[in-house]
Amino acid sequence: MARVKVFVYPKKGVLDPQGKTVESALHTLGYKKASNVRIGKYIEMELPDGDNKKMVDEMCRKLLVNSVIEDYHFEVAA
C-alpha cells in the first residue's frame, strides 16, 4: 500500500484567524520570535501501489481543498 499525506493550508493573503490567535498565544508564552503562524490540515490515506498522483490531485480539487481559500501539496510514499 502507498501512504498518501495531503497538506491543506490557508492561501497566502487569506486571513487565518486561528493562526493569528495561536501566534499571539505563543507570544504570551514568551516565544516572541514566532511569526506568520498559519494553521492548516493534514489528511492521510492509503491507496494501492501504483501511480496515484493524478488521482490524489483530483481528490484535492474535488473535495479536500477549497481553492478559494486554501492551497495544498501532497506526498505519496511507497
Binding site: P10, V14, L15, D16, P17, Q18, V68, I69
Partner: peptide
C-alpha cells in the same frame, strides 16, 4: 462565488 471561512475573532 467565493467562500465563507472562520470569523475574524474566532
Amino acid at each position: 462565488p467565493g467562500a465563507l471561512h472562520r470569523n475574524r475573532d474566532l
